[in-house]
Simulated scan of single mutants.
Amino acid sequence: MRDPWNAFVPYPDADVRHAAIGPLSGLRLAVKDLFDVAGYPTAAGNATVLAASGIKTSMAPLVQTLLDAGACFVGKTNTDELAYSLIGGNIHFGMPINPRDPQLIPGGSSSGSAVAVAAGLADIGLGTDTSGSIRLPAAVNGLIGWRPTHGSLDNRALRPLAPSFDVPGFMTRSLEPMATVMSAVGMPTANDRPSSILIPEDIFATIDDAVADEMIASLRSADMPIRRTDTIASFSLADLALAFITILQREAWESNKTLFERSPEAIAPDIAARLLSGSRLDDEEVREARRIAALFSRQIDRLLCENVIVALPTLAMSPPSRDAEPESFAAFRSACIKLLCLSGLSGCPQLAFPIINCARNASLSLFGTRGTDRMLVKVAQQLTAE
């Protein structure tokens, strides 16, 4: 397959069989190179991991589920190194090209899967989302991005980054195939309508006013109750982001400690620096971060217990250009994590989707209580109906 976008890792083709018929028949599947696929290595975006991988002889169970449902595997996709970034760059394998705007970053860490879908090289992009690695590239590339309820999908034979937050997830070009994917992987059906959609004033105040106005207008166009609230939690976004990053860095260090200690020079300097920060965290800092996460999760449970959905901007700011300075990447990552961390800390599902006829190519997200994944799709379909 011709790949001018650098979406796929250029592995030699292996025979990956799929069911002849099923709900995903006719849909092409691109798999992030964090999942084991029989006949291929798993590199996790790192040359040393690739050299040590060997050819896998078994299939990640989630990948097998998709193949059994009829999806046709078309290749393994590039990822940020060790899945530890939101930008889409990789010093070993290069940065995929954003088909929507080649001047911008593709977003990461599920960069290749997002680009493969956006470029029309695949219909389903399987990725992972720890701190936004599906939702962010979906938003940047104009896609639907689903971060599932934490723990709802099989994550065996998937290389971890931060298990408290890691989830497999998906990207598609439209909502209909996403709904089909949710059904195929066993998500429970959604018969309910939300009692209301909640707009948190403090969160929408952090983004561009014109974008916020377009998002709120889109929400009001649907035939369902809209409510405003000052905030969704007693913690500031900055405090939640700090707790999230603390847990993430500690677990990322634990997941990659052996690699770092054996081959520190084999890891990009910015990734290595974040790993090293995780190694230096004080245990009390980590305990306090976990305490905040637990309290926030309980507050979200109370907020959403009556079938409420929260609307959120997917991104905090416009994505930088692919040749921007490292400081711009860091500022973008830091700003976006303040919004993207909410699903990770709470374990709740989030669905990102582009707003129809929005001049600014904005992405809106719906955030619901655990297990309401398919309801989020139904609501998004109502919001995007012409």
Rank of each mutant, 00 (worst) to 15 (best):
274 R>E: 13
50 L>Q: 10
291 R>H: 08
47 A>R: 15
74 V>T: 08
292 I>D: 09
130 T>D: 01
200 P>S: 14
375 M>G: 01
215 M>N: 06
105 I>N: 01
232 I>E: 01
156 R>T: 12
8 F>L: 06
369 T>V: 11
296 F>N: 02
274 R>T: 15
196 S>P: 03
15 D>G: 02
181 V>Y: 14
27 L>E: 08
51 A>I: 05
160 P>T: 08
215 M>S: 11
82 L>A: 03
173 R>Q: 10
346 S>F: 00
304 L>S: 07
285 E>F: 08
120 G>S: 07
67 L>N: 05
372 T>N: 06
373 D>K: 00
273 A>C: 15
66 L>C: 05
112 G>W: 01
232 I>F: 01
256 N>S: 15
157 A>T: 05
35 F>P: 02
354 P>F: 09
190 A>K: 07
300 I>D: 00
362 A>S: 13
18 H>Q: 10
334 S>R: 11
180 T>M: 15
87 I>C: 00
173 R>I: 03
176 E>G: 09
299 Q>F: 02
290 R>Y: 06
273 A>T: 15
58 S>Y: 09
259 L>A: 12
12 P>C: 12
152 S>P: 01
251 E>C: 09
99 P>S: 04
30 A>R: 00
205 A>K: 14
104 L>Y: 06
239 D>P: 02
297 S>T: 11
385 A>T: 15
368 G>K: 05
